[in-house]
């Protein structure tokens, strides 16, 4: 009975780990569509492999010790030697440090630093995204390349959601859309994030882009889309009742398609 129980418990842990690895191996992340995203995916792949291996090894060891332990009539040596204790702890601690910190230092930090520290390329499309409950207001600077000033007191959710100052010449050619962003493939994108009310988070799962939109701040994300297609924008910071359906559309187009799109948006908005 005891050995049967031992078998069952052993198999529980061993089986759990194997099932876990099998399940995990079949899971795919959203299709990658950005340049720096490859670095993030590399980081994740490294971790999945190393952690997956440690996880499997650990659970199999646990299963083995259990299976073995129920069979023993007497305990083994009460203590390992001090040397063994230190060596084992030291080796494993060091090993883990190497895996964890090594991964960060070798793969993670270069990706992180490149992403944040790199100067914004000159040919980047700059887009102003103002999040609010529960939509993404998108604004392009237009041919003058400058965004018009905004004032919260001028905000009217139906007619002027961004609170654009009407006499500001820089704002006359701004193109405003709702929940729609289009960019050009292989051309850098710079998104300036704002929020009108609470903290939201601009999440592009396929592009490995996530940045909180914090009221009172204007954080930026810069990235390069590498595939054309239609993608979704999700909100990744609890922002209220409709947080779960604060959905936007991110179109990656060819240069020509983009110009058409921009012209259409501009025309649809009409004059101001």
């Amino acid at each position: 009975m005891k050995t049967l129980e031992g078998w069952l418990v052993s198999l529980l842990f061993a089986g759990t780990a194997i099932a876990g690895v099998v399940y995990g191996s079949g899971i795919r992340m959203p299709e990658l569509a950005s340049r720096h995203g490859a670095g993030i995916d590399a980081m994740l792949a490294y971790l999945l492999v190393t952690v997956g291996g440690l996880f499997l090894a650990g659970y199999l060891a646990l299963a083995y010790f259990i299976w073995r332990g129920v069979r023993r009539a007497e305990i083994g040596p009460r203590f390992a030697t001090r040397k063994t204790e230190i060596l084992l702890s030291g080796a494993l601690g060091l090993g883990m440090a190497v895996i964890a910190e090594g991964g960060v230092l070798a793969i993670g930090m270069p990706v992180w630093q490149e992403y944040f520290a790199a100067a914004t390329p000159a040919d980047a499309i700059t887009i102003d995204v103002t999040a609010q409950q529960f939509m993404w207001n998108v604004r392009y600077p237009g041919p003058d390349g400058r965004f018009g000033r905004t004032d919260p007191r001028l905000v009217d959710d139906s007619s002027n959601p961004l609170g654009l100052v009407p006499d500001d010449p820089a704002g006359k050619d701004d193109v405003v859309t709702l929940n729609e962003i289009a960019v050009v493939v292989n051309r850098p994108v710079r998104i300036q994030l704002r929020s009108k009310d609470v903290i939201h988070s601009f999440f592009l799962p396929n592009f490995r882009v996530k940045q909180d939109a914090v009221p009172g701040m204007t954080p930026e994300v810069v990235f390069v889309p590498t595939r054309t297609g239609e993608f979704e924008i999700a909100c990744a910071e609890l922002c209220g009742l409709a947080h779960y359906r604060m959905r936007g559309f991110f179109h990656v187009l060819t240069a020509e398609q983009f110009e058409n799109w921009l012209r259409l948006q501009s025309a649809a908005a009409g004059g101001r």
Partner: peptide, 22 residues
């Protein structure tokens, strides 16, 4: 063991960019 290993992902700033708030 398994929960702690997940911490390697989340403590890693680069990995966390994708995993934060998921």
């Amino acid at each position: 063991g398994s929960g702690g290993l997940g911490g390697l992902f989340l403590g890693n700033a680069t990995a966390d960019m994708q995993l934060h708030d998921t």
